[in-house]
């Protein structure tokens, strides 16, 4: 994990966050089903070159902070009928996140 100096991570484990609800064209690693959903930071994963830039041959710098965010399945899917504690984790870059209500 090298590259340009980076601001410190903006979120920490337990913080409540929401994924931006937006549909820009281009190569994005944020699946449609999770856009606009709220979850909690499970862990900070480190900083990585930005795939949205790497995909077009740019260097992907500065690196972006990456988090694993845990979402309650009942929050993600209408009518989800599994266990109430069922969750889904995804890796979300900081620029796709904003603070949400709640958290640990």
């Amino acid at each position: 994990m090298t590259g340009a100096a980076l601001d410190p991570p903006g979120y920490a484990a337990g913080d409540a966050v929401r994924v931006t609800l937006t549909w820009p064209p281009g190569h994005r690693r944020i699946p449609q089903y999770i856009r606009g959903k709220a979850g909690v930071i499970e862990r900070y994963c480190g900083s990585f070159r930005n795939p949205e830039e790497l995909a077009y041959g740019f260097d992907g710098l500065p690196e972006r902070h990456l988090y694993r965010v845990r979402f309650r399945q009942a929050e993600v899917w209408d009518g989800y009928d599994g266990h109430p504690e069922d969750t889904i984790d995804l890796e979300i870059q900081e620029h796709w996140l904003s603070p949400a209500e709640g958290g640990a």
Partner: peptide
Amino acid sequence: LTIDELRRCIE
């Protein structure tokens, strides 16, 4: 080349 470029081309 990068895996990200290949993914974009696959998409």
